[in-house]
Computed example of a mutant assay.
Amino acid sequence: MSQDKDYNQAILEAPEDLFYRFPLSLVHGVPLMKPIANNWEKIENFLARPDDLLIATYPKAGTTWMQEIVDFIIHDGDLDQANCAPTYVRSPFLEISSPPPIPSGVDVLETTPSPRMIKTHLQYKLVPKSFWEKNCKVIYVARNPKDIAVSYYFFDLMKQTQPDPGTWEEMWTILGWGSWFDHVINWWEAKDKHQILYMFYEDMKEDPKREIYKVMKYLGKKLPGEVVEKICQHTTFKAMKENPMTNYSSMPSAVMDHSISPFIRKGEVADWKNHFTEKQSKRFDAEYEKRMEGTDLKFRCTI
């Protein structure tokens, strides 16, 4: 546990000017933050272990939610275990590469005991090949692009040191379409090649207990009904929003400014209706239909 505390302490004690908006660099045609690109050789050569569990998502697709559900399942609903450290400590972020003195995700994972629960936002083609060579289990969570666009926008505002750069639509047009589409499609096409459980955010919101049972079955766990109910209660958005171990409130304001927008904001399906005009919605739908033509992958923007 000392390593976990050291990592968390390094973040808390880092000077504020260490954190700023990093420029992007291409890695195999995919734009990544420059520190990640600079550390790419180490990330690409990361050595997975057979009992590693990888939780993969496009940003703002329910990553923390799934991390908490899995952590509870693995530890049989033990609340003390789930609250022993912040989510980002219990489930290290594989590719994150902050400037020194903060250790990279790879550095942290190399000293993390097995079994490891690992978070990534990498596209399928960028995931270190050792995960497939070791036949690791992966849980992938996908979310509809309309809610992703809005959630990503508010998350981006948390990290601003400059005034609002524009609307969510402008940000999504620049960063979202190609990145989101490649992400969800490539993971969808890979799901039958490896041990990948492909899940949908909207299904999790519609019936959390049903989806928790799905994850349990995939992980080979059998838990009593009362434990499953406990997991449901402690992984609601209300519970996670109030829990300092999940809401990222321990992060310095230089990293995430919760006075602008909380990390766990709403978690609703169809919140996009509060932000899209009718014209924007139609334009978005047309682009979605064009990009998704020919695939059997389908998303629900309402439930």
Rank of each mutant, 00 (worst) to 15 (best):
G77M: 09
S281W: 09
V227S: 09
C232H: 00
D285L: 09
L18A: 11
Q160S: 13
E242G: 04
I139K: 00
A190Y: 03
Y20V: 07
M292L: 12
S281I: 08
I43A: 01
S114W: 12
A56F: 04
G220R: 03
F284H: 03
P100R: 06
Y201K: 02
C232F: 12
N39Y: 04
D164A: 05
A270K: 09
N144V: 00
P128E: 00
F276A: 02
K241G: 07
H234M: 11
M158V: 00
V184N: 00
E229Q: 15
V106G: 04
K217R: 14
K129V: 08
N144E: 10
P244W: 02
K298Y: 12
D164V: 10
K125S: 14
W187H: 07
S179Y: 12
M256K: 13
S104N: 05
E242K: 15
I148K: 00
N39E: 08
K241I: 00
P92K: 01
M245P: 06
I231N: 02
D271V: 12
M251S: 07
V70K: 06
M256Q: 11
E133F: 07
I102G: 06
H121V: 06
S179E: 11
W132E: 14
I118T: 02
Y198W: 05
A286C: 12
L24Q: 13
S2F: 14
K222V: 14
P50S: 13
P145H: 04
K146E: 00
E242T: 07
A190K: 04
Y140P: 07
Y20I: 05
E293P: 03
W180K: 06
I212L: 02
D17L: 12
E289F: 12
K222F: 11
E202G: 01
F200E: 04
D271K: 14
I260C: 05
K119N: 04
H194A: 15
D207P: 04
D4V: 13
P262L: 08
M199P: 01
K137A: 08
S25L: 13
Q280Y: 07
R49L: 15
I212M: 05
S2N: 15
K222T: 14
I74A: 11
Y124L: 05
I74V: 13
I55G: 05
D271M: 13
D203R: 08
K266Q: 10
P128S: 07
S179K: 13
E287I: 12
L175V: 09
F93H: 09
E242L: 12
N8F: 15
K134T: 12
Y288N: 08
F72I: 05
F154H: 12
E16G: 10
G29E: 10
D147L: 09
D17M: 08
D107M: 06
A142R: 01
A82C: 14
K205I: 04
L219F: 07
L175Y: 11
A190V: 07
C232A: 07
Y88C: 10
R300E: 11
V141W: 02
N135L: 08
P244C: 03
F154S: 06
V215M: 01
S261G: 03
K119L: 11
L175K: 13
R265F: 07
D192Q: 11
K209G: 09
I260F: 00
R116C: 10
H121A: 06
E289D: 15
